[in-house]
Computed example of a mutant assay.
Amino acid sequence: MRDSLRAKVIEVCRKKILAKGDNVNVSFYAFFANKNDDPELLMEAATWWIKTHELDHFVKARDVITLVENDR
């Protein structure tokens, strides 16, 4: 995962946790606008989420942060 996407994922997850609490769930779509303006980046996130880590559609934001931080 490229560094810019890694930073975006962590930022979005932290904002969601602050807004909705520690048990909030996210999907990889949470990191993108409601339009497909960067399909390559979307596919990179989807591949990381679905193929690499075999995550369910919704996952605890805190768990996603841990995965991203440990996935170097």
Rank of each mutant, 00 (worst) to 15 (best):
M1N: 11
I50M: 04
K51W: 01
V24I: 15
R72A: 13
K51Y: 07
L41T: 15
I17C: 11
R14A: 12
I17G: 11
L55N: 00
H57K: 08
V9T: 06
D56T: 02
R14M: 11
V64F: 01
A30K: 04
S27Q: 08
F31H: 01
V68L: 05
T52R: 06
I50Q: 04
V68Q: 07
I50S: 05
K51I: 06
V24P: 00
H57T: 13
E69G: 02
E44I: 14
D37C: 08
D37L: 09
L67Y: 03
V12L: 04
E40Y: 13
E69H: 00
V64I: 15
C13W: 06
E40R: 11
L5Q: 10
V24F: 14
R62K: 15
R62V: 15
L55G: 03
N70V: 08
A33G: 03
D3C: 04
S27K: 07
N25W: 11
P39A: 12
R14F: 07
F58S: 11
N36V: 11
V59Y: 00
I10T: 01
T66P: 07
V24H: 14
A30V: 06
L42C: 09
L67I: 09
I17K: 13
D38S: 12
F58R: 12
L67N: 00
S4I: 15
N25C: 11
F31W: 03
V24L: 13
T52N: 09
A46D: 09
I65K: 05
N23W: 12
N25G: 10
A61Q: 09
I65P: 01
I17D: 14
R72V: 12
M1G: 11
L41Q: 14
F31L: 02
I65V: 13
E44G: 09
V26K: 05
L5E: 06
K60N: 14
A33C: 02
D38Q: 13
K16Q: 15
